[in-house]
Simulated assay, not measured.
Amino acid sequence: MTSATSTALRFAFAGMIAMAVAMGVGRFVYTPILPGMMEELRLTPADAGWIASANYLGYLVGALAAGGGWAHGRERLLMLAGLGASTVLAALMGLTDAMAAFLIIRFLAGLASACVMVFMASIVFSRIAAAGRGDLQAWHFGGVGLGIAISAVMMAVLVTVHAGWAAGWLWSAAISACGFVLVALLANEGPLTDGKAAGEPALPKDRSLMKIIVGYGLFGFGYVVTATFLVAIVRQGGGGRVFEAVVWMAAGLAAFPSTWLWQKIAARIGLHAAYALACLIEVVGVAASVAVGGRTGPLLGGLLLGGTFVAITALGLQAARQQAPRAPRRIFALMTASFGLGQIVGPIAAGLLAQASGDFFLASIAAAAMLVASGAIIWSAAPKSP
């Protein structure tokens, strides 16, 4: 094994752990902890939606800020600061019960996770590119699923010892602290660069690119309803605490290999077609989580959500990068802004719909419709063969 390959492997592993901490735990542990918070703190579905959206607003602001050239040369420091902040903020969530504090903490946690997402990607992908090992991107993105699975195991253990919701946040902080130490040791340098911060050209005024940006925003709305409320849906259906953890673990385990699998599918049928197909498969899961009775619906919902949402995120960014290859940072920021708006509006709309209707059926069907629209719009943006 060459030194470039072993370095790429080490950085890909560091990226996987960083994504597990910042995204799998930092962003998505709210989903399995939420039913306990709703029950013990008497939070309404609308309250839950606002807290989720505060996190996504922080992520949007952080991603847009991180897209600027000011961070050049400081990527590793900012990434570690994001991981450290994610750890501290998880602990703070377990030490308060005030709605205003939840909103502020989750907003800041969103900022932190965006810093890790953007800067760790620049560090890891530069090392992977230098070694010619683009296949290792799947390891990096797989960290989201790994973090979700770890948080599901944690919740299953806490449930069996009858711990309250606050313990979920405090143990999340402990797990995040371990991840922080590993990442700091493994990712010992910043991204490979040619030493100059190059300016990027303006984005092309292209109809296909506009479709991809709009479709990606609709996906942000469509996936986030189930990603936020899936465990609350299980709780409402009386599935039991251990089954809640099982459903969330199914989502995490399905997410871990999903990017690798969907890249293979995209190589066979094309990026845009793979994106549309993944959206349709996720629609089945979103609808099943509320329409299929017993344990089958939520379990199918977890498996199909996990098996698609991380991969769709990656496929959408790839499709946009194809349209604007000379402005990767600008297109990343614009796509993240569109996606971010969708996932900010999603939980608020879903929470209000759930509160008005008494369950998550209408909200989930609205989310499924958004996913269908997203897949159709991006499929229509595929380059036409001559």
Rank of each mutant, 00 (worst) to 15 (best):
V161S: 15
V116S: 00
T228A: 08
L218D: 02
P204N: 09
L218V: 11
G217E: 09
M155D: 01
L186T: 02
L203A: 04
V234G: 12
F221M: 11
S122M: 15
I123A: 07
G237A: 01
L136Y: 02
L158A: 03
N188R: 15
A138N: 04
G132S: 02
M210N: 07
N188A: 12
F180K: 03
G195H: 05
L146P: 00
E189D: 12
L186M: 05
W171V: 15
P201S: 07
G132C: 03
A173H: 04
L182G: 00
A174H: 13
V181W: 09
G217W: 07
S113Y: 15
A232P: 06
V144M: 05
L170Q: 09
S122Q: 15
K211I: 04
W165K: 08
G164V: 12
F180T: 13
A187Y: 03
L182N: 06
L186N: 00
L185A: 05
G142N: 01
V225Q: 10
I128P: 02
S122I: 12
G179V: 00
H162F: 08
A149M: 12
G145I: 11
L209A: 13
L203D: 11
S126E: 03
F180I: 00
S113V: 09
A163C: 10
A166D: 14
C178T: 09
V231D: 08
S151V: 06
A197D: 08
V153H: 01
G199E: 13
A130E: 08
F229K: 03
G215N: 02
L185D: 03
V224C: 06
W165F: 06
F141V: 04
L203G: 10
S126P: 04
I128A: 04
A114Q: 03
V161H: 11
V234P: 00
W165E: 06
G199A: 15
G143P: 01
V183R: 03
H140D: 03
A149F: 15
G239N: 05
V181M: 00
I150M: 15
G215P: 12
L192D: 00
A166I: 04
P191F: 05
A184D: 01
W171P: 09
L203W: 12
L158Q: 08
E200V: 02
A152G: 08
V159A: 10
L230M: 13
G237L: 00
A173Y: 04
G168E: 13
F219Y: 14
D206V: 14
P204K: 06
A112F: 06
T193N: 09
K205V: 15
